[in-house]
C-alpha cells in the first residue's frame, strides 16, 4: 500500500490528468465491464487495453500490479467456485470438448475481477488516495463518504501496525497450539476494536483542536483542461463501443472473411 502511494506521487502525463477525469473514466469502465452478460468472455477482452495502457503510461510496474491482483484473487476464485457444478449444460465446444455454462461463467467472473481490480489499482496508482477522495467529493458524493475513505486510508497503516504488534506479543508467549486458538483471537479482535475506538476519540479531539467543523477542506485546486475532457470522452466512447459491439468477434469475422 505504501508503494502504491509512492507510485502515485510520480509525475507522468497520466498522473497529471485531473483526478475527476480519471475517476469518471474508471467509473464508466467499471459499469461497462460489470454489465456484460454472465457468459461473455470474448467481448471483455478489449477492455484490458485501458488498465494496460494506463499502467504503462503511468509507469506502474506490471509485476507490482500482478502481485496485488494475486493477493485479492481468492475472493473472485471463491465466489465462482461452485458455478461449474451448478450449471452443467454444455454451451460451447472447443474443438471436440464440450464446455459447460458453469465453467464459462466462472471464467467470466475471473475476467471481470481482473479487469475491475486492475482498473481500480491503476486509478489509485496514478491518482493517489487523496486525489480519488477529492475527486469523488467534487463529483458530488457526500462529504462524509469522502472523509471516511480518507481516514480509512490514513489509519489502516496505524491499525495494521497495532494488530501486528498484538499478534507478535501473542506469538511470543504462545507455545505451539497453546494460546493461538480462536478464543484468544476473538478477544484480541475485541481489544483492537476498543483501542481503535479510543484512538478515534483522540483523533477527533485533535481535529477539534484545529477548528474541525465537520468538513475537511482541501487546499489543492483542481482544474479541468481540454486534455482531461478528451481523455474522459475518448476512453468512455471506446468503452461504450467495446460494450455494444463484440470487437474481437467482428475482427475475427473480418479476418476469416478476407481469407475465404
Amino acid at each position: 500500500m505504501g508503494q502504491l502511494d509512492r507510485l502515485a506521487s510520480q509525475d507522468t502525463p497520466v498522473h497529471r490528468l485531473d483526478p475527476r477525469a480519471k475517476v469518471l473514466t474508471t467509473l464508466v469502465f467499471l459499469v461497462c465491464v460489470v454489465s456484460f452478460s454472465k457468459y461473455s468472455i470474448l467481448g471483455m477482452v478489449p477492455f484490458a487495453l485501458f488498465p494496460i495502457a494506463m499502467a504503462s503510461e503511468g509507469r506502474l510496474p506490471l509485476r507490482f500490479l500482478a502481485r496485488k491482483l494475486v493477493a485479492v484473487a481468492p475472493f473472485a476464485i471463491f465466489i465462482g467456485m461452485f458455478n461449474p457444478w451448478l450449471d452443467r449444460d454444455v454451451i460451447m465446444y472447443l474443438g471436440d470438448i464440450g464446455i459447460s455454462g458453469g465453467w464459462v461463467s466462472y471464467a467470466s467472473i475471473i475476467g471481470r475481477f481482473l479487469l475491475t481490480t486492475s482498473a481500480a489499482l491503476v486509478l489509485i496508482g496514478t491518482t493517489g488516495m487523496m486525489g480519488v477522495c477529492m475527486a469523488i467529493e467534487r463529483l458530488g458524493a457526500p462529504d462524509v463518504f469522502a472523509t471516511q475513505l480518507l481516514f480509512l486510508y490514513r489509519y489502516i497503516f496505524v491499525l495494521g501496525e497495532e494488530a501486528m504488534r498484538m499478534s507478535r506479543a501473542r506469538a511470543l508467549r504462545s507455545f505451539g497450539s497453546h494460546g493461538m486458538g480462536m478464543h484468544v483471537y476473538g478477544q484480541m479482535l475485541g481489544q483492537l476494536l476498543l483501542r481503535t475506538y479510543d484512538r478515534a476519540q483522540r483523533v477527533y479531539l485533535a481535529m477539534q483542536c484545529r477548528g474541525f467543523d465537520g468538513h475537511v477542506r482541501v487546499m489543492r485546486t483542481l482544474r479541468l483542461t481540454g486534455r482531461d475532457v478528451t481523455f474522459t470522452l475518448g476512453w468512455s466512447a471506446a468503452f461504450v463501443l467495446f460494450r455494444l459491439y463484440n470487437v474481437p468477434l467482428l475482427v475475427g469475422h473480418f479476418v476469416t472473411g478476407l481469407i475465404t
Binding site: M130, F151, R154, A206, M207, C209, D213, V216, R217, M219
Partner: peptide, 15 residues
Amino acid sequence: FMPTVYEDVAFGPVN
C-alpha cells in the same frame, strides 16, 4: 491525520 504533511499543517489555518 491528513494524507500529507503539508495538508496536515494547513488543516487548522484552512478551518
